[in-house]
């Protein structure tokens, strides 16, 4: 088995495992408690008047930090890709 085929096999396994995890999840909308109702009701918990910032930087801080790291990776990648090879 060559290296290319190994890569393809790993990619296929990743896609299949993702599909196994994601497809059986419940996607129908539940009627009792929608997420924005929870946000609006517990606004005072965070203590900021901008609710978007409250969601981004308190309830979903994990998301924002990883997003900042993704931006860091993007800068790094474009910096390495656009390097002038003649110098």
């Amino acid at each position: 088995m060559t290296a290319d085929n190994l890569k393809r096999l790993v990619a296929l396994l990743l896609v299949l495992s993702l599909a196994y995890v994601l497809l059986p999840m419940e996607y129908s909308r539940s009627d009792d408690m929608v997420s924005y109702e929870h946000y609006v009701e517990n606004w005072e918990e965070v203590g900021v008047s901008n609710l978007v910032m409250g969601v981004l930087a308190d309830w979903r801080l994990y998301d924002s930090v990883i997003e900042a790291m993704i931006f860091f990776t993007g800068v790094l990648g474009s910096y390495l890709l656009l390097e002038d090879e003649s110098k």
Partner: peptide, 20 residues
């Protein structure tokens, strides 16, 4: 957390904004 609606409030959210 500070007082609701003042510039110095919200704990570490302003710090996070400055860093980002």
């Amino acid at each position: 957390r500070g007082t609701f609606g003042l510039p110095i409030s919200g704990g570490m959210i302003p710090l996070f904004n400055i860093f980002v």
